[in-house]
Computed example of a mutant assay.
Amino acid sequence: MSKQDHLYEKTIASQSIYEGRIIKLKVDDVLLPNGNTAKREIVNHPGAVAVLALTDDNKLVAVRQFRKPLEQTIVEIPAGKLEAGEEPLTCAMRELEEETGYVASHYEPLSAFYTSPGFADELLHVFVATGLTKGESKPDEDEFVDTLELTLEEARELHKNGEIRDAKTVVALFAWENKLLREQLKG
């Protein structure tokens, strides 16, 4: 018996509610550790990647995009969902080029985290991309974005004024700032 067994919720029934192009929604009946039952609404997601792309002159490559659930335009780092069987690095390379036109010569894993573990199983892989070369963007037919190059100060200001609000981009900004601080301490 592991230390966490006393927290486990056993699924006793599961009902599929919706299956879309990106997500699936189900409702599970679970047996709680105390013997009671509860319902859990769960979003299944194939996973995604995000790219903290930094130019040679230390600018962040970002995109401005309208997000329907928010009914507003926000600034984000390039990102996209994993296709079936696709490796995260392959997806990161594809998404960076599709959304921004940039191709990177070096990718380094930064982090992987669950975006909303209270109701979704989406695992987001974040990569740092450097050695960038500018090319032509090739967005999906239903994707409309503006590509931006931002200094850290400009990105901070966009975060402060609410244009950068999504978790992946906020995490990336903190990681970028941390990277710069570590470099200053070394140098």
Score class of each variant (00 low, 15 high):
Leu7Tyr: 05
Arg165Asn: 14
Pro78His: 01
Arg40Gln: 10
Ile17His: 10
Leu181His: 14
Glu9Tyr: 12
Ala175Lys: 07
Glu149Val: 04
Gly101Asp: 01
Val171Trp: 09
Met1Pro: 14
Glu141Gln: 15
Leu158Asn: 00
Asp57Lys: 05
Thr37Pro: 09
Glu143Ala: 04
Phe144Gly: 02
Tyr114Met: 08
Leu52Pro: 01
Glu9Thr: 11
Leu89Glu: 10
Glu71Val: 06
Glu19Met: 15
Glu97Gln: 07
Ala13Arg: 13
Leu89Thr: 04
Ser116Tyr: 12
Leu32Met: 15
Ser116Arg: 08
Pro69Ala: 14
Ile23Leu: 12
Ala92Arg: 01
Arg21Ile: 04
Val75Gln: 04
Glu149Thr: 06
Val49Ser: 04
Lys168Pro: 03
Gly187Arg: 05
Asp121Glu: 07
Ser16Ala: 15
Ser137His: 04
Glu177Val: 07
Thr100Trp: 07
Met93Gln: 11
Ala175Tyr: 08
Ala92Met: 05
Leu181Lys: 15
Tyr114Thr: 08
Glu76Ile: 03
Asn161Gly: 05
Gln65Asn: 02
Arg182His: 15
Phe66Gly: 12
Ser137Val: 00
Gly118Asp: 11
Tyr18Asp: 13
Lys81Met: 09
Val171Leu: 12
Ala172Met: 09
Gly187Ser: 11
Lys81Val: 04
Val63Trp: 04
Arg182Phe: 13
Ala172Val: 15
Thr151Ile: 01
Met1His: 12
Lys81Pro: 05
Lys160Gln: 10
Val170His: 10
Leu132Tyr: 01
Ala62Thr: 05
Leu82Met: 00
Ala50Lys: 11
Ala129Asp: 01
Val27Asn: 09
Glu95Trp: 10
Ala112Glu: 11
Asn58Arg: 06
Thr73Asn: 11
Arg156Ile: 03
Tyr114His: 06
Pro33Tyr: 12
Ser111Pro: 06
Lys168Tyr: 02
Thr11Asn: 13
Lys10Glu: 14
Asp56Gly: 11
Asp140His: 14
Val145Cys: 04
Gly20His: 13
Leu158Ala: 00
Leu123Phe: 07
Tyr18Cys: 09
Thr133Ile: 02
Asp121Met: 06
Arg67Ser: 06
Phe144His: 08
Lys68Cys: 04
Gln4Tyr: 14
Pro139Leu: 03
Leu123Ile: 01
Ile164Tyr: 01
Arg21Asp: 12
Glu86His: 07
Val171Met: 11
Asn44His: 13
